[in-house]
């Protein structure tokens, strides 16, 4: 396992693409978060809402770039044919796949931590200037606040789970454009489609099974009862998706001819 990990890490660091994608992910996440917090102001009349969640809005954009990176880790090898070199060097396909997953998890966790903490810091600075002060009941965002800590750590976990989910789907589909279409469809479409379901139970169900609509419940710090799922259960749904696609992708990688 160690040589496989070392090889995958070397692969990841010796092309410029992954680094740029991760830097872009951090920039996009922080930028969208900062943008979202800078458009709200707290007036004396109306100052409700979940400011922690708002400060972490950028994760919705950052996850798309995480998905690209994850897809390229495997589809990129299929499109060039290098997957055969990889599997010749590491004939234990499960090990090779696990090495990819672990390396990806590592780099996304590091970049995700930077992106999420950056978003939170931006939110803290911006919200304070927009009237969200301790007086109307909005103390500065801080990791010492339990729910905020949970939302922050959960957002980092969420990004790594999206990376794993994407890796699994890319291993199943193999073509990068189709994989990314399916991943972004799963993430972005389910919440939109759930709005057309007239039956409230059906609507709630769709929001509960959507990897994004369920998983981002981890970012909520207020109004927890109105969420489709409790925060950790929601993140659990995303983890379930990641596990299911990884297992399916891993099995297909084992049984299919390379």
């Amino acid at each position: 396992m160690r040589p496989a990990l070392h090889a995958e890490w070397t692969k990841l660091r010796t092309v410029a693409g992954p680094l740029w994608l991760l830097l872009g992910m951090i920039a996009a996440t922080v930028a969208l978060s900062a943008g979202a917090t800078s458009v709200v102001t707290c007036t004396s009349a109306d100052c409700g809402g979940d400011v922690t969640r708002l400060s972490l809005t950028g994760v919705q954009l950052g996850q798309a770039m995480v998905a690209i990176l994850a897809v390229l880790v495997i589809s990129g090898e299929y499109s060039s044919g290098m997957i055969r070199t990889t599997l010749t060097a590491m004939p234990h396909r499960a090990t090779a796949f696990a090495a990819k997953a672990i390396t990806l998890t590592g780099v996304v966790a590091v970049a995700g931590t930077t992106a999420v903490l950056g978003s939170l810091l931006a939110g803290r600075l911006i919200l304070h200037r927009h009237g969200f002060t301790a007086a109307p009941g909005h103390p500065a965002l801080s990791l010492s606040d339990g729910p905020t800590l949970r939302a922050t750590a959960g957002s980092i976990l969420y990004l790594t789970l999206i990376a794993l989910l994407s890796l699994g789907i890319a291993a199943i589909v193999r073509d990068s454009a189709t994989s990314i279409g399916i991943i972004l469809g799963l993430l972005y479409l389910l919440p939109i489609l759930s709005q057309v379901i007239g039956n409230p139970h059906g609507q709630r169900l769709l929001q509960q099974i959507g990897p994004m609509s369920a998983g981002l419940a981890i970012q909520a710090t207020t109004n927890l009862h109105s969420l489709p799922l409790s925060p950790w259960a929601g993140l659990g749904v995303t983890a379930g998706w990641a596990a299911a696609t990884l297992v399916a992708g891993g099995l297909l990688l084992r049984v299919r001819d390379a």
Binding site: R2, P3, H6, K11, T14, S80
Partner: peptide
């Protein structure tokens, strides 16, 4: 079957690492 933007040396390097 190569990644076009990886250098030859780095291509061999990851292969070498996979074999310890």
């Amino acid at each position: 079957a190569l990644h076009p933007s990886r250098s030859a040396r780095n291509h061999l390097l990851w292969l070498a690492h996979s074999q310890g």
